[in-house]
Simulated assay, not measured.
Amino acid sequence: MKTYHAEVARDGRFWLIRVREIDRSTQALRYKDVVTMANELIEIMDGVGNDEYDLHLEVHLPSSVKDHQARAEVLREEAQRKQAEAAAEHRAAVQELLALGVSQREAGEVLGMSFQRVSQFSSLRRKTARIV
């Protein structure tokens, strides 16, 4: 099965679509129409049906947009690490209170957590204790 590669870039108000294998271009007003327009161009110019080929899109974005995306990914990963650290600290607080003989309900009230969340943290402690 043949594969066509469509390079897509914003050009003013339109998305410019260039299909390398047929050396032709088209455009779409909305991004959601890019695949349809590329398919129509391929089918008209090469006389093939849409089940006779694969289409691979390569979207070219301005470097400033790529920079924002890269920074957002770094921040997302950092947020995930921080969230995991916060959960570990919550878990440690729950486990210390329970070790002092405080009930799960009281621990939840004192720490501003639901009973169910405290119960999850205490069951994690028991599972960890069995594994070790």
Rank of each mutant, 00 (worst) to 15 (best):
M1I: 01
E7S: 08
V8A: 06
R10Y: 06
D11L: 09
D11C: 09
I17H: 02
V19H: 01
R20F: 08
I22W: 01
I22D: 03
R24Y: 04
S25V: 05
A28Y: 09
Y31S: 05
K32M: 13
D33I: 05
V34W: 04
A38N: 03
E43L: 00
E43A: 00
M45D: 00
V48T: 01
V48P: 00
G49F: 00
N50S: 08
N50L: 00
D51L: 05
Y53G: 00
L57P: 13
V59E: 06
L61C: 06
P62L: 13
P62M: 11
S63F: 10
V65E: 02
Q69D: 09
A70P: 05
A72S: 09
R81L: 15
K82M: 09
Q83T: 07
Q83E: 10
E85A: 12
A87F: 08
A87M: 09
A88T: 14
E89D: 11
E89R: 14
R91T: 14
L97C: 06
L97V: 05
A99C: 04
L100D: 15
V102T: 12
E106H: 10
G108W: 02
E109S: 15
G112S: 12
M113D: 11
R117E: 11
V118G: 14
L124Y: 09
R125N: 07
K127H: 10
R130N: 12
R130H: 13
